[in-house]
Amino acid sequence: MYGGGYGQQSYFDQQMQRMMEQKQLKDFMRMYSNLVSRCFDDCVVDFTSNKLNDKELTCVNRCTLKNMKLNERIGQRFAEENAKLMEDQARMGQ
């Protein structure tokens, strides 16, 4: 891809890698906090106790798993749509 300049290439790759990792961590943290507020919001309704009751606990468990599956599915479709979009753009660019 880059003729010559091997040293620069690897420095660039390192920077890129670092940037990607930071972004992914940030992305993960955002996903995590969204999940918590979503499941709290959807499941926790009873404030007569300071512990989650059985119903709430079940709900939180299902909410976590189900939302992970939802995100996974959205991710797959998103990647597909995005690939399609890029193909279109590449075709228009020619």
């Binding site: 890698q17 990607m20 990792e21 972004k23 992914q24 961590l25 992305d27 993960f28 996903m31 995590y32 992970m68 995100n71 996974e72 959205i74 991710g75 797959q76 998103f78 990647a79 995005n82 690939a83 979009l85 890029m86 753009q89």
Partner: peptide, 23 residues
């Protein structure tokens, strides 16, 4: 605009959740 972010290759560094579309 979105050039190449999902280039379809699969190196996926560690903390990415399965939820993340990052590929």
């Amino acid at each position: 605009m979105f050039g190449g972010v999902f280039g379809g290759n699969s190196q996926k560094p560690a903390p990415a959740a399965p939820a993340s579309p990052m590929g």
